[in-house]
Amino acid sequence: MTLKAATLDHKIRNRKSLLLQLAEQRGLAGLLHGDSPLSFGARFEIRRQLDEAARQKNLETIVQLAHRASSDDVGSEPDPDWLSHFLALAENIRHPAMQQFWAGILTQEIARPGHCSIPALNCLRQMTQKDALLLQRASALSCHFGDDQLRLLFGYQHRTMLQGLRQHKLSLGHHRLSYAGLLQLFELGLLHQSELESGELPAGAPLRLALHSRQLVLTPARKGVRLLYYRFTSIGNELAALMSDNPPGDYLRELTELLAPLGLLEGA
Rank of each mutant, 00 (worst) to 15 (best):
G199T: 15
P37M: 06
Q163A: 09
S142I: 05
F86D: 06
G155V: 11
L201P: 02
Q49Y: 04
N246H: 12
L190N: 12
Y230H: 11
W102H: 13
H67C: 04
M243G: 00
I235N: 02
K11C: 07
G204D: 00
S244Q: 15
I46C: 09
F44Y: 08
L124Q: 06
H85V: 14
Q100I: 01
E91V: 09
G204W: 04
V74C: 03
R68F: 13
R253A: 13
R208W: 03
L18R: 15
S198P: 00
G236V: 12
L185T: 05
V74L: 08
A23C: 10
A54Q: 12
D79C: 10
L89S: 14
E52P: 02
L162I: 15
G249A: 15
L22M: 14
S71L: 12
S234L: 10
L196P: 00
E266Q: 06
I105S: 01
Q193R: 11
R159Q: 08
S36I: 02
P220H: 09
G75A: 12
D250N: 13
H10M: 11
M98R: 14
A180Q: 07
G224M: 13
H115D: 13
M161F: 14
E254P: 04
A221Q: 03
S36Q: 09
F186A: 03
P206A: 06
H168N: 10
Q215T: 06
H10R: 15
R176K: 13
D245S: 12
D51N: 11
P247Q: 11
T219H: 03
I105H: 11
L106C: 12
F145E: 00
A54H: 03
Q157W: 11
L265T: 03
D72N: 10
Q21T: 06
S70I: 03
L106Q: 13
L165K: 07
Y156P: 02
M243Y: 09
G164I: 02
A6E: 08
F86A: 14
A268G: 03
F44K: 10
G224I: 15
A88F: 04
Q25F: 02
Q56F: 04
C143Q: 10
L135I: 04
N246K: 08
L201F: 12
D51S: 09
G263C: 11
L18Y: 14
E254C: 08
R112W: 06
K4D: 07
Q21H: 11
L188V: 12
L211E: 00
S70Q: 14
